[in-house]
Design a protein around this nucleic acid. Structure first.
Lengths: 201, 201
DNA sequence: CTTCTAATTAGATATTTGTTAAATTACATA
DNA sequence: TATGTAATTTAACAAATATCTAATTAGAAG
């Protein structure tokens, strides 16, 4: 039954240790011992989690001498569209731009902004492609104050200065975790949180 | 911490009952009692799961008299790009059949399969109409193994068991992204696999 | 054959989680 | 106010899960 596949997929990602494993693997393959050390768990625990990730087809394994190297399954990479995959791949860069120089990236960013914003600074529409959408969202969010709390009405007004469909964009802010919402109060997710996630490991 | 949100999100979707609730809600809002009845669980169980779904911002609630109506958080509607959301929204999204019941769709599907496959399970020919063609392609692809890599010759043989024009059908697999091809190696796109929701009800 | 390293298994334990029955709360209306 | 319906809470329990330690297996290299 297909339901099991879906549930299994989410179960595989429903554990912090496993997410951390995936984050580590996004940087490149790694064997069990180094994963265990990096995450401060025993090798047995890694074996346990590796089995779950394997069942969900999220990782591949390769034997070299008596070490087993784990790596991310390619299709996980290609289908990365949610916050999770975004989190995991933010640093590694979504495969295509792995070898992009920092200048190339800046140029891409500029091109996207030029494309989706009018000369007056209005947002034409949200890009459908995740990578571009994130560039746009980051641009908007960069104009908010760090540490300040915004009421819902305030946030709506802010967004409306760029685009009339504030509800959608507000939702995007939340889902992509550029902002947190708590009891109708919105607050920027400290930049370190999404730009520097290394501390997760 | 960001990690908790991600894990929480996946935990929310890591239970079959909750997925079924979301599927039911994709048809429209529903109150707790009818959900309980439809899923053959007690109202207490629904309350329990609703809390989890609410924590993950997947549903909204509305009170009318003394009944509480649950509905999907609209975020999902606009971002149904991943396997799960795609699964849940497939019928709502596919234009034209938006108001088709899950039963109607199952019936359509059966009719199409009956029409385009012989009694021996051979494919007569590919439907010209897109919607029907996709039904046929999904049916074929559902017989492939998830996570397995197929050589070109293997894929051809597989298709030939259904129809001699393997080249066309192979191309359709790729075009409609049921499979990926890389260096002559074909592999099922897990997303499409998971998107087969028919048997879930 | 012995030794070393890496990974897995097996068993144990504590925690979390899904479910239910029973009691309770919240609204609506007669 | 009393009654009925829907939802929640509480307490209990079984099942699943994450982790560890200790023992075992797999492979490489002396």
């Amino acid at each position: 039954m297909q339901l099991d596949k879906i549930v299994g997929y989410h179960k595989a990602l429903a554990d912090p240790t496993r997410i951390k494993i995936l984050i580590l693997l996004a940087d490149g393959e790694r064997n069990g011992l180094t994963l265990a050390e990096k995450l401060s768990v025993t090798p047995a625990t890694i074996t346990h989690h590796a089995a779950k990730l394997r069942e969900a087809s999220l990782i591949n394994e390769r034997r070299e001498k008596n070490a087993i190297y784990f790596s991310l399954n390619d299709y996980f990479i290609k289908n990365s569209s949610t916050a999770t995959e975004n989190l995991i791949y933010r640093r590694a860069g979504s495969q295509g731009e792995a070898d992009m120089s920092i200048n190339d990236q800046a140029r891409t960013r500029e091109a996207v902004l030029k494309n989706f914003f009018t000369m007056e600074g209005k947002l034409k529409h949200l890009p459908a492609q995740l990578k571009k959408k994130l560039i746009v969202l980051e641009h908007l969010v960069s104009k908010l104050d760090l540490g300040r709390k915004y009421g819902e009405k305030e946030i709506n007004e802010f967004i409306k200065a760029f685009h009339e469909d504030f509800a959608t964009i507000r939702r995007e802010f939340i889902m992509h975790q550029y902002m947190y919402r708590e009891e109708q109060i919105y607050e920027l997710n400290p930049r370190e949180m999404w730009a520097r996630w290394e501390e997760l490991s």
